[in-house]
Structure formats: structure tokens, C-alpha cells
């Protein structure tokens, strides 16, 4: 069990690094979703299925989606500005 947790921890750390060092936000949202799955696996290994469940729903699905929507909104705002000029 401890090996499992150690492996999951390492993967989570790597995932965090990938999220942080992905400079383009739309791609970052995809990585964030994967990071959410990694965290859920870690939480399961830590015997916290309820937390893993909310992590899957919130961290792996809802938050990346909100990020994606924000990016779309920002892009359309800026495109509208560019057309005005």
C-alpha cells in the first residue's frame, strides 16, 4: 500500500509541474483535468473515496470546464475588440 501511495504522490508532483509549466491556458486546462484524475487516484489510495469522488467531479471536470469557458470568453472579447479597430 505504501508503495502505491509513494508512486501516486510522485505522479501527482509530476502532474503539478506539467500544469504549472504549460504556458498556453487552453492546453493547461486539459492537463489540469488529467491532474485532477491523478489526485483522485492518490486520494483513493489514501482511503478517502468521498474526497476522491468530489475531486473527480469538481477538480477533474467542473474546474477545467470553467477554465475553458473563461478562455473562450476572453478570446471572443478580444476578437470583438480587434474587429472594432
Amino acid at each position: 500500500m505504501n508503495i502505491l501511495i509513494t508512486v501516486a504522490l510522485t505522479l501527482v508532483l509530476a502532474g503539478a509541474a506539467v500544469v504549472v509549466f504549460t504556458p498556453v491556458p487552453s492546453r493547461q486546462a486539459v492537463v489540469l483535468s488529467v491532474y485532477g484524475i491523478l489526485l483522485a487516484a492518490l486520494f483513493m489510495a489514501l482511503q478517502a473515496p468521498d474526497v476522491a469522488l468530489s475531486q473527480v467531479a469538481v477538480g477533474a471536470a467542473v474546474v477545467p470546464l470553467i477554465v475553458m469557458l473563461a478562455i473562450r470568453k476572453i478570446d471572443s472579447l478580444r476578437a470583438a475588440r480587434r474587429r472594432q479597430r
Binding site: 498556453v24 491556458p25 487552453s26 484524475i37 467531479a57 478562455i71 478570446d75
Partner: peptide, 25 residues
């Protein structure tokens, strides 16, 4: 969620994949 999520992402990233460039860049 993962099935629906991938669909949504594919939909929103559609333009980038075509243009070969990142959104929000």
C-alpha cells in the same frame, strides 16, 4: 464524466486543432 469531458474539450479545442494554434495564447 471522462467521456463527456473529452467530448466537451474536443468541441472547445476544435478551432485550435484546426488552426494548429493555442487558444488564449
Amino acid at each position: 464524466l471522462s467521456a463527456t469531458g473529452t467530448l466537451v474539450f474536443t468541441r472547445t479545442l476544435h478551432q485550435d486543432v484546426r488552426a494548429g494554434q493555442g487558444a488564449g495564447d
